[in-house]
């Protein structure tokens, strides 16, 4: 069955210059393993192909549990000079949660 990340997890986006940070936090601790397996840095890069130009690195935080993604060259130059509507990329947490995974 295909589901959206939105169905099982929540996220907050942050920005540092032209870099986007995205957390991915399962509502249920039991879903952490599924997220680790399906939401790889490679899969996220594929999902964000029209948004993130640079590399994506994933950090695992099993104690929380949560995943953290660092996306380079993701904010069309960064908050101070970008022409985009959402210069911080704050709304991109919900672009992430649109990602479809197989369960």
């Amino acid at each position: 069955m295909k589901i959206k990340l939105y169905d099982i997890a929540h996220s907050r986006a942050g920005d540092k210059g032209n870099t986007l940070t995205l957390s991915l936090i399962p509502f249920q601790v039991k879903d952490y393993a599924l997220l680790c397996e399906q939401v790889t840095a490679k899969a996220v890069k594929e999902h964000f192909q029209s948004i993130v130009d640079g590399e994506i690195v994933r950090y695992e935080l099993p104690n929380l549990p949560a995943l953290q993604f660092i996306c380079q060259q993701a904010l069309t130059g960064g908050v101070t000079t970008s022409l985009t509507m959402d210069t911080h990329g704050k709304s991109l947490s919900y672009a992430f949660l649109e990602m479809v995974i197989e369960v």
Partner: peptide, 16 residues
């Protein structure tokens, strides 16, 4: 813990 997790990871470039 859910609201705290979102904030703990907010703008964190390397959690370690």
């Amino acid at each position: 813990t859910a609201t705290a997790k979102e904030q703990l990871l907010y703008e964190v470039m390397d959690p370690g």
